[in-house]
Design a binder for these strands. Structure first.
Lengths: 189, 189, 189, 189
DNA sequence: CATGAATGAGGTTTCATTCAT
DNA sequence: TATGAATGAAACCTCATTCAT
C-alpha cells in the first residue's frame, strides 16, 4: 500500500505518455489518473523528467534482458534470430504501452538515448552484424537492420490497429519466419 | 512578397516541428526563425493548429501525387512497386523535414489523420492489396505492408543517422530491389 | 532523550536560517539535518514560525542577560562600555549562527521585534544615553549608537570573512578600545 | 509608455524587495503593484532572478559611479573621505529602497556579489587602504572599514526609523565629521 | 501587414501542514 | 513520539492568442 503509489504513478504515466505523448501529458493528468493530487507526485519523483527517464530505463532494461536471455539459450543463428523477433513482439503484445513508449522516446529524445545502457536495439544490431560476418546473412547488415526494426514496429502497430489479424502467437511466428526467409534464405547481395 | 512570409512560416514551422516536435515548438520559436513577431503569424494563420494541419495536408498531398503519377506511368507491377518505393525515399531524402513531420503527425495525431484525403499510405496499401489479389504477391498483404512501410521509415532514419551509407540513388535502388525480392520473388505463404 | 530532539531541531534550524535565510530554509531541510521526518517536527513545534520566534527569543535573551550581568558588575562607565562591547563580540564569536540570525531577524522582521522584551540593543541604547546624560559621552547618543552597533556587526562580519585577522580576544579588546577612544576620548560635539 | 512598464516593474520590485525581502516578494506582488498580470512580467524579464540581479547591478553601479566621480574631484584625502561618506548617505537618503536593497543583497547573496564589478564597497576599501598606506590613517584599515561601513548603514537605518533626527544635509555632514575625527584625528594604533 | 505588450489559462514545482498508522 | 504519504495553496513560469497602435 505504501510503495504502491509510486508504481501506480509509473503505470498511469506510461499509459498516458504512450496514448497522448509525453509533452501532451500533464502532471495533473497523471495525478488524476492515480487519484492523488499533483503535489503528491513529487514525493515519489523529483520531476516529470524523472518519470520519463525511469520509464524508459525500466522497460528498456526489461526488453534488453529478455533478449539477452534468449540469445544465450539459442543454439543456432536461425534460432537466435527468430527467437529475438518473437521476443520483441511478445514484449510489444504483452506491454503495448511500454513498447509504444520506447518508440516515442527514441523518436523524440534520440539524443538522450545515448545516456542509457541496455538499449535493446543494440543487441539486435550485434546479432545481425554477427550473422553477416559469419556469412549467414548475405544482405548488408544496415539494410537488414532497417527491415527488421521497421517491420517489428509496424507489425505491432498494424496488429493493435486491427489491420493485422489473427492470434498473437501466430503473428509472432509468421513475422519471424517472414523476416528470416526474406533476409537470409533469399540470399541477396 | 505577401505570400512569401506565409511560405516562410510554413517552412520554418516544418523544420522546427520535425526537429523538436509540435508541442515542443512555440509560436515564438517560429516567429523568431522567420524574423517576424508572434502577432504577425496570426495575419497568416488562424491558429497554431492551422499550421500543423496545413503542413500535413501540403506534404501528404505532394507525396500522394508523386506516387499517383508513378503508378499511372508504370507498366508492370514490378515497375509500380519499385518506383513507389523509390518515390517514397526520394521524397524523404529531398524533404527530410517533411517526411519526418508526416511520421510524427501519424504517431501523435493518428485520430486526426482520418480527416484527410490523399494519405500516401493508402495508395501503397491499395497497390499491395492489388498485387496480392492478382497473385503477384504471395505474402499476406498486411505483412507485406508492414515490411514495406517499416523498412521505408527505417532506411530513411538510418540514412540520416549515418548508419546506412552510400549515395542516395544507390540506397533507393537497393531498398526497392531488396523489398521486391523479399516479398515477391521469395514466394512465401 | 525527548528534550534532546527539540534542541536538535532548534540547533539545526538556527544553523540553516543563518546560512541560507529563513524563507529559504524548509521544514524538510531542518528535518533532514536533524535526521527525522517532517511530521516529527510538528510534535515539538506548532509551526515554522514558532521555531523562528523561539530562536529569536532564546538568543536575544541570552545575549541580553550576559550584557545585564556585565553592566551590574562593572564599576565605571568605561568598564561598562568596554565590557558590553566585548560581551557582544564574545557572543558573536562563540555563537556566530545565533548572532547572524539575530541580525537577519532584525532586518526582515523589524515589526515583530517589538513583541519581544529583552532586546540587547535596548540595553546598549540605555547605556549610551546614560553616558551622554552624565556628560561622559559628548557625541550625540543617536550617532554613538549608530557607530557602536554598526561597528559591532561589521567587525563580526569581517572577522568571519577573514578580512579582519588575529586572535578573537585581541579583536574584542581592540574594538572596545577603538570605540571608546573614538566616541568618548576624542570629545566631539 | 512602451519602455515604461519595464521601469515600473523594476521600481515596484525594488520597493517590495527592500520592504519585505526578496524571497518574501512574489512575482504576483510585483505584477499587482504595477497593475499588470504575472505573465506580462516575463515579456520584460526572463526570470525573477534577472530582476534581482538587474536591480543590484543598476544601483550598485550608480552608487559606484557617484563615488568614483567624487574621488576624482577631491584634492585632499580629507576631502575624499568626507565626500565619500556624504555621497553614500546622499544616495541612501535619496534612494532609501535602493540602499536597503543593496544591503539585503549583500547579506543574503554574498557569494553572488563577486560576479559583479562596480561594488561601491571596494572603492571605499581602496580609499581607506590608501590612506593607511600614506600614514594619514593610523587606525588599522580593516577596523576603519568596519567602523565606516557599519556606521553608514546604521545612520541610514536610524534616520529612517526616526531615531536620528534633523535635516538630512546635517546628518550627512555630522557623520562625515564624526568618522573623520574618530578614525583620523584621534590618531590611534 | 506588422509590432510587441498584455492576457489568461494552465503547466511544473515547492512547501507548510495534516493525518492515518 | 515518529513516520511518511498526502493535501492544498501558492509559487514561478510558459505560451497560444488578442489587441491597440
Amino acid at each position: 500500500m505504501v510503495a504502491r503509489t509510486r508504481d501506480l504513478i509509473l503505470e498511469e504515466a506510461l499509459r498516458l505518455f504512450s496514448e497522448k505523448g509525453i509533452k501532451e501529458t500533464t502532471i495533473r493528468d497523471i495525478a488524476r489518473a492515480v487519484g492523488i493530487t499533483e503535489g503528491a507526485i513529487y514525493r515519489h519523483f523529483e520531476s516529470k523528467d524523472q518519470i520519463v527517464y525511469e520509464l524508459f530505463e525500466k522497460y528498456s532494461s526489461q526488453l534488453y534482458e529478455s533478449i539477452e536471455k534468449v540469445l544465450k539459450k539459442a543454439r543456432t543463428r536461425e534460432e537466435q534470430f527468430k527467437k529475438v523477433v518473437i521476443t520483441f513482439l511478445d514484449f510489444a503484445f504483452k506491454k503495448p504501452d511500454a513498447f509504444r513508449y520506447l518508440n516515442i522516446f527514441h523518436y523524440l529524445r534520440s539524443r538522450e538515448v545515448k545516456k542509457f545502457k541496455h538499449i535493446p536495439f543494440l543487441l539486435l544490431k550485434e546479432l545481425i552484424v554477427g550473422m553477416h560476418a559469419e556469412g549467414v546473412l548475405k544482405t548488408e547488415p544496415e539494410y537488414a537492420l532497417a527491415v527488421v526494426t521497421g517491420t517489428l514496429e509496424r507489425v505491432f502497430l498494424y496488429k493493435s490497429m486491427g489491420i493485422i489479424k489473427g492470434r498473437k502467437s501466430k503473428v509472432k511466428e509468421r513475422t519471424a519466419q517472414l523476416l528470416w526467409r526474406s533476409l537470409v534464405e533469399c540470399s541477396q547481395s
